[in-house]
Design a protein around this nucleic acid. Structure first.
Lengths: 221, 221
DNA sequence: CCATGAAATGAATCTAGATTCATTCGCAGT
DNA sequence: ACTGCGAATGAATCTAGATTCATTTCATGG
């Protein structure tokens, strides 16, 4: 806001960004390879090719680092999901389907981070945890909106918007949570397609089934 | 098998059982009150009113203790779910509904333990983890069976039995996983009823809807 | 070529707990 | 009352990491 006049300062900022990104990437690699618990300041430093002390120049502590990893995915959700939904047009059914698919893709790309969301309670500050909950809820907002729109237009028959929205999110999260099980059965593609069909079947009333047969899967009607 | 001749030995066994149960209960209380991470050997000892050292007489270490907590719920699942399903009769739809409800009840009763299932990876031995996965899968077996039966009889239209079975389990787990969200919105009762309806809507094809209107919730058809 | 300060290092320090074990307690059998 | 033994204690020890900070390296401007 007031520093962008200094080119040297800008350069510093840029380098800092880069370092911080480098660390987050190393953390991602580490989690992907050896699981989220394997991230110690030491192992992270080694993986990133820097010294332990340096990490503290870019993150206040381990908690901030983990928080950053999580905020990263939530951010991706917040960007990718609305984008995909908007590209899908107006129809709430197609919008929801697009949202689910986008979620699956981001999740596949950052499985470890999604898992962290369910685990990192210990190492996270209460404020951090709170922030995550808030963000998760706002992430769901577009989905919730689609449900409401579909409900109004009669495309969906909804029992409880809040519950069913969260259910949809969970179905996608399960790709990360139960990856050891799904991994050898489905590709992300298949997974996304099936979960979409399943979620929609729960929402679309009989009379609308024919119209969306393509999304509802094999048997169709 | 060969010690049950000694009454003194039997008494010892009984006391040991009791202690071990006492410890598990204390752990449960602690987790329920302050979250799963709050269980340290110290805090557990204090909560149970014993000394730290004593815990090691009954459990090999913290990992064994946590494993025991988890095996406890999985055991309850293995007992309660089939029981409820059998009491529900032959119809796969009613069997599934009964299973879901039973799951919700056990989960509500041991929320902390379900959450542990998703978290304790670090502190658990690989064998322990493996055992948990196996048990979780066998827990699902009755549900899977109901899906298959319903599929055969035409009551269910299933896209993929494995996936949809796990989905049902997840929907119930979410009572524990997202309790901070659901807590102030629904009672377990409401939650169980709605999740049942939602799960069934995804499974029951249009032509069967009328028959199970009661389970499918408000609007019914 | 030097002075300056930011960037980076990593050994030393701290901390939170888990685990051990020498000691004490309490009771059953004599 | 006394002996022996399993039960119980909890202070001392160990461990795994997280965090700090005195020191070194590097780049930049003069």
């Amino acid at each position: 806001m007031s520093i962008d006049t200094d080119p040297a300062e800008a350069a510093r900022q840029a380098r800092a960004e880069q370092r911080s990104a480098q660390l987050l990437e190393a953390a991602a690699r580490l989690m992907d390879r050896d699981g989220p618990e394997s991230v110690s300041m030491q192992s992270l430093a080694t993986e990133a090719g820097v010294s332990v002390g340096l990490i503290y120049r870019y993150f206040g502590g381990k908690d901030e680092l983990l928080l950053a990893v999580i905020l990263n995915v939530l951010d991706a959700f917040g960007t990718e999901v609305p984008k995909a939904m908007d590209e899908a047009g107006e129809d709430p059914v197609h919008r929801l389907a697009a949202g689910v698919r986008a979620l699956c893709e981001v999740i596949d790309d950052q499985r470890y981070a999604v898992v962290l969301t369910y685990r990192a309670t210990k190492q996270l500050s209460p404020e951090g945890r709170h922030r995550i909950m808030e963000l998760e809820l706002s992430t769901m907002e577009p989905l919730r909106e689609a449900l409401r729109a579909g409900q109004k237009s009669g495309a969906f028959e909804v029992i409880d918007v809040d519950l069913e929205t969260y259910n949809v999110l969970l179905l996608t999260h399960s790709w990360a949570l139960k990856h050891w099980y799904y991994e050898r059965r489905y590709t992300v593609e298949e997974f996304a397609t099936m979960q979409t069909a399943i979620a929609l079947r729960a929402l679309i009333p009989p009379r609308q089934r024919r119209k969306y047969a393509a999304l509802l899967g094999n048997a169709g009607a």
